[in-house]
Amino acid sequence: MVYKIRDKETGKVYEVTIDEETNEITVYDVKTGKPVKTVNMTIEELKEAGYEVEPV
């Protein structure tokens, strides 16, 4: 599923895909559409880390 996340401190917005089964999150560069990095976190962990998470 695709989400937009926003860093509450910097205001930067990222587009991510989240595999609900493995909790693998792939972060994409919004301008190029290319993957930047992959992390292993849940949506709740993202929120605790200071991100706003919205489904696209």
Rank of each mutant, 00 (worst) to 15 (best):
M1N: 10
M1Y: 12
M1P: 14
M1Q: 12
M1D: 07
M1I: 13
M1R: 14
M1C: 14
M1L: 13
M1T: 11
M1F: 13
V2M: 13
V2Q: 12
Y3G: 01
Y3F: 12
Y3C: 09
Y3M: 11
Y3A: 04
Y3V: 04
K4Y: 15
K4C: 14
K4N: 05
K4R: 15
K4E: 05
K4H: 12
K4P: 00
I5C: 07
I5Y: 06
I5G: 00
I5H: 00
I5V: 10
R6N: 02
R6C: 09
R6D: 01
R6P: 00
R6T: 14
D7G: 01
D7P: 00
D7T: 00
D7Q: 07
D7V: 04
D7C: 15
D7L: 03
K8V: 08
K8H: 05
K8T: 08
K8N: 05
K8W: 06
K8A: 06
K8Y: 06
K8S: 06
E9T: 14
E9P: 01
E9D: 09
E9K: 15
E9L: 14
E9G: 08
T10M: 02
T10F: 02
T10Q: 01
T10S: 08
T10L: 02
G11N: 06
G11W: 03
G11L: 03
G11A: 02
G11V: 00
G11K: 03
K12E: 12
K12Y: 10
V13F: 07
V13A: 05
V13Y: 09
V13L: 08
V13S: 06
V13D: 04
Y14K: 00
Y14V: 02
Y14T: 01
Y14E: 00
Y14D: 00
Y14M: 03
Y14W: 13
Y14N: 01
E15A: 12
E15V: 15
E15F: 15
E15G: 10
E15C: 15
E15T: 15
E15R: 12
E15W: 15
E15I: 15
E15Y: 15
E15H: 15
V16F: 08
V16Y: 03
V16I: 15
V16E: 00
T17E: 06
T17S: 08
T17V: 11
T17W: 13
I18Q: 04
I18H: 10
I18S: 02
I18E: 02
I18G: 00
I18R: 05
D19C: 09
D19L: 05
D19N: 15
D19A: 05
D19E: 05
D19G: 03
D19R: 07
D19H: 08
E20I: 13
E20L: 14
E20S: 12
E20M: 12
E20Y: 13
E21S: 13
E21F: 10
E21D: 11
E21K: 13
E21P: 04
E21H: 11
E21A: 13
E21L: 11
E21Q: 11
T22F: 06
T22G: 06
T22Y: 06
N23M: 08
N23Y: 05
N23R: 09
N23D: 07
E24C: 13
E24L: 14
E24M: 15
E24S: 14
E24F: 12
E24W: 13
E24D: 07
I25P: 00
I25E: 00
I25V: 08
I25Q: 01
T26D: 01
T26W: 07
T26H: 08
T26L: 05
T26R: 08
T26N: 04
T26S: 04
V27M: 15
V27T: 03
V27W: 15
V27A: 05
V27R: 01
Y28V: 07
Y28C: 06
Y28P: 00
Y28R: 08
Y28L: 08
Y28H: 06
Y28Q: 02
Y28F: 09
Y28I: 08
Y28T: 05
D29I: 04
D29H: 04
D29S: 06
D29Q: 02
D29N: 06
D29V: 02
D29L: 03
V30Y: 12
V30I: 14
V30T: 12
V30G: 09
V30F: 10
K31P: 09
K31H: 14
K31V: 15
K31E: 15
K31W: 13
K31L: 15
K31N: 13
K31Y: 14
K31S: 12
K31M: 14
K31D: 14
T32S: 09
T32L: 05
T32G: 04
T32N: 07
T32K: 02
T32C: 07
T32A: 04
G33T: 02
G33M: 07
G33A: 05
G33Q: 06
K34G: 04
K34Q: 10
K34E: 10
K34I: 10
K34L: 13
K34P: 01
K34D: 08
K34Y: 11
P35L: 13
P35G: 04
P35E: 08
P35Y: 14
P35H: 10
V36L: 15
V36G: 04
V36K: 04
V36T: 07
V36Y: 11
V36C: 15
V36A: 05
V36E: 05
K37Q: 08
K37A: 15
K37Y: 15
K37L: 14
K37I: 13
K37R: 12
T38L: 08
T38N: 06
T38M: 09
T38E: 04
T38C: 13
T38P: 03
T38V: 11
V39I: 14
V39Q: 04
V39M: 14
V39L: 15
V39K: 04
V39N: 03
N40E: 07
N40C: 13
N40W: 14
N40Q: 13
N40V: 14
N40F: 15
N40I: 14
N40G: 06
M41A: 07
M41T: 06
M41W: 08
M41H: 04
M41Q: 04
M41E: 01
M41Y: 07
M41C: 12
T42D: 04
T42I: 01
T42Q: 02
T42K: 06
T42A: 03
T42S: 11
T42G: 06
T42L: 02
T42M: 02
I43P: 02
I43H: 02
I43T: 02
I43S: 02
I43A: 03
I43Y: 04
I43C: 08
E44H: 10
E44R: 10
E44L: 09
E44Q: 11
E44K: 11
E44M: 10
E44I: 09
E44N: 12
E45K: 08
E45A: 10
E45W: 06
E45M: 10
L46F: 08
L46Y: 04
L46V: 07
L46N: 00
K47W: 10
K47D: 04
K47T: 08
K47V: 11
K47P: 02
E48P: 01
E48T: 10
E48F: 09
E48I: 10
E48Q: 13
A49R: 10
A49W: 11
A49C: 15
A49N: 09
A49H: 11
A49F: 10
A49Q: 11
A49M: 13
A49K: 10
G50R: 05
G50D: 03
G50N: 06
G50T: 03
G50S: 03
G50L: 04
G50I: 05
G50H: 03
G50Y: 06
G50F: 05
Y51T: 01
Y51E: 01
Y51V: 02
Y51I: 02
Y51L: 03
Y51Q: 01
E52K: 04
E52P: 02
E52R: 03
E52V: 07
E52S: 07
V53T: 03
V53R: 02
V53E: 03
V53N: 02
V53P: 04
V53C: 07
E54Y: 13
E54L: 14
E54S: 09
E54A: 07
E54K: 05
E54M: 13
P55C: 11
P55M: 12
P55G: 09
V56M: 13
V56L: 12
V56H: 09
V56R: 06
V56D: 07
